[in-house]
Design a protein around this nucleic acid. Structure first.
Lengths: 196, 196, 196, 196
DNA sequence: GATGAATGAGACTTCATTCAT
DNA sequence: CATGAATGAAGTCTCATTCAT
């Protein structure tokens, strides 16, 4: 009766979901969530519209799933970044941030775009808020360890700088001197004995 | 010959356009351009759907008009901010930025949101890009006059910080310590003899 | 109290109505009645939309008025065409028909187009039907006087030929050999002693 | 893998398209293309508005599809009409024309109506023009073989007569003596040794 | 008489979602 | 699991018509 083994079916599910996520991300990032239709996603993912509804209850549910899928990736990334030396730890954070921006700017762009519409997508807003708090605290702790004055205030500025750089990079794209800015920042915050 | 005087008609037109702009801004800012319908705008503006098309050729044309209406306001603002003392000039920029963020966060939010979708709304992207360049240059010049090392790099960081603070304020809203950040920044950049 | 004399007002009315008719005809003929908007008519006539409703109750009413305006012109024309000699009378009809087709093909086109939609514009259908009957009878009478066999049948064919030539001329326009066809027809029907 | 077989799907598609075509033709013919709404077509076809857009990109695209669907039918018909004897060939053309007019006057009416609006629907104009040329040439050739004087001129008149009869039949409908006219024409053009 | 701002019904079209197979 | 035909609500936009002046 069951021609496929459980694991085979599971594999198919994952493969389909992966295709859906990839297509969604690409489209949501470039056109925005609202302007992307389920048909477009299905076409790009090379599956049928109906199949999407096997895995997701609605378009919004797909967005939620997609966002969740980032969290797991992000959590993994965080573990790799930890270092005993706060300067090195901070440098790693910088490097990962710039790497992500370069290689997966779509994700960044999509999240940023949706975060700005807190009235519509409350769950996105909640996610963004939570993440922001975590970042503030992590940065504050590191800056404190490094010995920077007013680590709380500087953490907020540094976090803002990250997202601001992200925005400007999206707007200016290839013309933006991402490498230079990266080097400059790392030098400024992670190499000297004192920064402020 | 003409039943209403020219000035009467002009007054009516301006009043309607103002109502449309106000409603549009509010909705575009909170829900986004795509997710806002002409019907919603008409309802909020308390006019008929059709009237919007007396003044704008399309929804996109309305967006363009709305964006243009900001430019005039912004240009005015810029003239008031100039000062011979670069520190004072910079401080004025800070103060105006934070004031705007507090009082007209909708505009900032809408522009930021649209700027992130450069693939869809090229004219917005062009506007954002142009403004960004102007800001980079102005900040660089001021930081140079103040005597900061590497004014080019610092200008980019400072500009990024502005927009990053904007984003975080939108996300966190009332909980964000906008006043503190403002004071801290002004102190850091505009009060000391040397900053870096 | 009355700054304009009655005749002055009447003159203005006529002038406005004439402008409306001219603009309507041009637009109805080239785009069709349905595809022409009141705004377009007002713009082409260089008057306001509202003024049209001073003279006509509705768009359909304007069409009726326009059609009626043709009837008067046509009646005049008919009187000039009469001749004691049936061959000459027929030749005059031919000549007027071709002249009209050449110089006012818009009218012909519009009437033909609307006549085909009897389900929608019953009054047009009634007009067309009535005129057709009159033509059949007139032609039959003339052909009979000229001595043609089966004048009833030939009258129908001749009338059909007229309208068919009109259609083909509209479709082919400048490439259609209207002059040749005119000469050929007149020669065939009006010059020989016997035709059939 | 595929839940419905390919042929099943194809069958569904054809059935829906047929329903759409049938409803469209009926409405376009009686009210005209412009005055017919997609909603009306959907209602008459007993399907949803949306389904029409599964098969056609736009209302104009539907019209094009409908017109194309005639061409295939017409081409088939032409093959059945050919005969070695030019008189018989011509008679067949007459008979088919009158048969079509009687049984599918809607098609004739729709094409005629649209052909008159060459400014709006260029593709229709092109179709009509092309067909007209073909008819002129075919008739000329046949009339020449039959031995009629001035076959070029007579072909034009005959073709015009066809379309004129069509118009008059549409206008007068049941009162029009289509049978008599058919017999009379066939007798006149196809039975005698000489006609002119 | 004349204007044009304003309305609202309805046009075309898109799209998330359902469902038979 | 997978498909895509089908639906219907809602979107953008048009337009005949009204009315205050």
């Amino acid at each position: 009766m069951s021609p496929r083994s459980k694991s085979q079916i599971e594999e198919m599910r994952e493969k389909s979901i992966r295709k859906i996520y990839d297509a969604s991300l690409e489209l949501f990032a470039s056109k925005g969530y609202e302007a992307t239709s389920i048909s477009q996603i299905a076409k790009k993912a090379e599956i049928s519209k109906g199949l999407i509804y096997n895995y997701f209850d609605s378009k919004l549910d797909l967005l939620k799933g997609l966002m969740d899928s980032f969290s797991t990736v992000e959590a993994e990334m965080m573990t790799k970044v930890v270092d005993e030396d706060p300067r090195k730890f901070l440098e790693n954070i910088f490097r990962v941030f710039f790497l992500e921006l370069r290689e997966r700017s779509g994700i960044w762009k999509m999240i940023a775009s949706l975060s700005l519409q807190k009235d519509m997508y409350e769950f996105i807003h909640d996610m963004a808020l939570e993440k922001l708090i975590v970042y503030y605290e992590l940065l504050e702790q590191l800056l404190d360890q490094i010995g920077i004055e007013n680590p709380k205030g500087e953490a907020k500025l540094l976090a803002a700088m990250f997202d601001g750089i992200g925005m400007h990079y999206i707007v200016i794209s290839n013309e933006y001197p991402l490498d230079e800015v990266e080097d400059y920042l790392i030098n400024k915050y992670c190499k000297h004995e004192k920064l402020d």
